[in-house]
């Protein structure tokens, strides 16, 4: 029982990372109409930038700021490339955006494995992760770290903020209108390109925050991490139903819990394979996603 509680908590914290990543992916899909499955690679890149800044300046705060800033900058720099092929939405093939995303992912992953830390995984300082301070709560076998609590709390708050923004604000209303019917949105006077850029900026902030939370929770990163997460995020969003934000929230958390339970009770090193087999079964049963696609 104690193991179960501990693993569920574990799962919720890693799950909230998945939720953040899936939400960013879905927002770009719905509002900017791009399939950016390398979005998690950009996030891992920001982890690396954050690490570089921390290593050079010795300041955790600057590292956090640098990580978030780099995610926004990468998103905004790459936006024109995506926007260029999305200018003529009626006739464009959305799959072309996938090729750009794939290319970006490969370039970034190569840069990470060749130029940073001689290709070795990077480790974040204890001042960020809080690992030197031991567990925050420790009862019997259950031990919960500061990092886990922080990730879960900020993750939940940030997702709540995103949903508030989407459903209660002017910009969010425009996002949803474009997501449902880009041409109709244009006819009521919503500027498509400008609103698309806003969604890039927003997902940039989202990616930056996620990068910092991942640094806190995982304590380390490697060049291949982005690809691995990219696969999971794509799988989660398809299983939930492409573009389904609430679905992504639920499936993201469930995947986190599933993995944690596998790690707690079965072989940890098999958690990826088993998780993907479970997802395979789900997608065979529900090819259109458990909660239905919103595209």
């Amino acid at each position: 029982m104690e193991i179960l509680i501990a693993q569920i908590f574990n799962g919720l914290s890693i799950g909230s990372i998945y939720v953040l990543l899936v939400t960013g992916f879905n927002l770009l899909l719905l509002v900017a109409m791009i399939i950016h499955f390398s979005f998690p690679v950009v996030v891992v890149f920001s982890m690396y930038i954050s690490w570089v800044v921390m290593t050079l300046t010795g300041s955790v705060t600057l590292g956090v700021v640098g990580g978030i800033a780099s995610a926004i900058i990468v998103n905004m720099i790459t936006a024109p490339m995506f926007q260029h092929i999305m200018k003529d939405r009626g006739s464009v093939d959305i799959n072309a955006t996938m090729v750009i995303s794939m290319g970006m992912g490969m370039v970034i992953t190569d840069i990470l494995s060749h130029t940073f830390n001689q290709g070795f995984p990077i480790a974040f300082p204890d001042a960020l992760t809080g690992n030197d301070q031991g567990a925050l709560i420790s009862v019997g076998l259950v031990s919960i770290s500061r990092g886990q609590v922080l990730t879960l709390v900020i993750g939940v708050l940030f997702v709540a903020f995103l949903f508030w923004l989407l459903y209660k604000t002017r910009a969010g209303r425009a996002f949803r209108a474009i997501a449902e019917d880009p041409n109709g949105a244009k006819l009521v006077g919503i500027p498509l390109l400008k609103t698309g850029f806003q969604s890039y900026a927003l997902t940039g902030i989202l990616g930056g925050v996620t990068a910092v939370l991942m640094a806190v929770l995982l304590g380390s990163a490697s060049a291949g991490l982005g690809d691995q997460l990219g696969h999971k995020v794509l799988a989660v969003s398809i299983i939930a139903g492409l573009g389904n934000l609430t679905g992504g929230l639920i499936i993201g958390l469930l995947l986190g819990i599933l993995e944690a339970i596998i790690q707690g009770y079965l072989a940890g090193s098999w958690s990826n394979a088993i998780a993907f087999i479970v997802m395979l079964v789900v997608i065979l049963a529900k090819p259109k996603g458990v909660f239905g696609s919103k595209l």
């Binding site: 949803r176 209108a177 449902e180 949105a185 009521v188 919503i190």
Partner: peptide
């Protein structure tokens, strides 16, 4: 916009 509320649709006019 079918998936949005009547209120949201109206507010889009005043975007």
């Amino acid at each position: 916009f079918s998936s949005m509320t009547v209120m949201d649709n109206l507010l889009l006019g005043a975007h």
